[in-house]
């Protein structure tokens, strides 16, 4: 009596295939999560709309993000800055009432970060703005967004692709961006 090699394989086949299916499914599941439940467009504490401010009322980006061409960070406007206009404008709207509440309590608004790079990355808005990059290149059609949605991956290949394409000086050197 002898056990043929084929029989041996076929007796292991189903468990192996099951394993393959688990791995395959894992990938699919991760992808589903990544595509449909990503953190690209979180609900913010105040339903701030870039569309109303930029498209409808024609306010320039730099009016609020004042530091964008001067410092590494763009500078999210202070609550005082918001209240500078909203003391008088649209004070009856529910979102503005929320804003006024923060101001009355002298508390900052806990915005949820949409665009975030890891701590080991050095990113400076100033250099990009001074190089003539439009806000929309990275932030997408931000002026039309009722809620901020991240359109770029902000992953390293995405950065490097652009640096390569634009032939940035030392743009592919690691320490240009890694601190």
């Amino acid at each position: 009596m002898s056990i043929s090699v084929g029989d041996a394989i076929s007796s292991f086949k189903i468990p192996i295939l099951m394993g393959v299916m688990v791995i395959f499914g894992f990938g699919i599941g991760y992808l589903i999560n990544y595509t449909f439940f990503s953190d690209r467009s979180p609900v913010q504490p105040i339903n701030f709309s870039h569309k109303i401010h930029v498209t409808d009322n024609n306010i320039q980006c730099m009016h609020c993000h004042a530091y964008v061409d001067k410092t590494p960070s763009a500078g999210v406007p202070s609550v005082k800055k918001c209240m500078g206009c909203h003391k008088a404008i649209a004070t009856d709207k529910p979102e503005i009432i929320k804003l006024t509440e923060y101001w009355d309590k002298q508390e900052p608004i806990p915005w949820i970060k949409v665009h975030d790079v890891p701590d080991f990355v050095y990113f400076t808005h100033k250099r990009h703005i001074k190089a003539g990059i439009e806000c929309q290149t990275c932030h997408g059609p931000i002026e039309t967004m009722a809620r901020v949605t991240r359109v770029s991956s902000l992953k390293m290949p995405w950065c490097v692709d652009c640096h390569t394409e634009k032939q940035v000086e030392n743009g592919r050197d690691c320490v240009t961006c890694h601190k």
């Binding site: 890891p118 080991f120 030392n170 050197d173 690691c174 890694h178």
Partner: peptide, 15 residues
């Protein structure tokens, strides 16, 4: 760790 064009011997932590 690699040599960059500035003559620096760099160390990239996340790598």
């Amino acid at each position: 760790t690699y040599h960059n064009q500035d003559g620096l011997n760099t160390q990239i932590y996340n790598r």
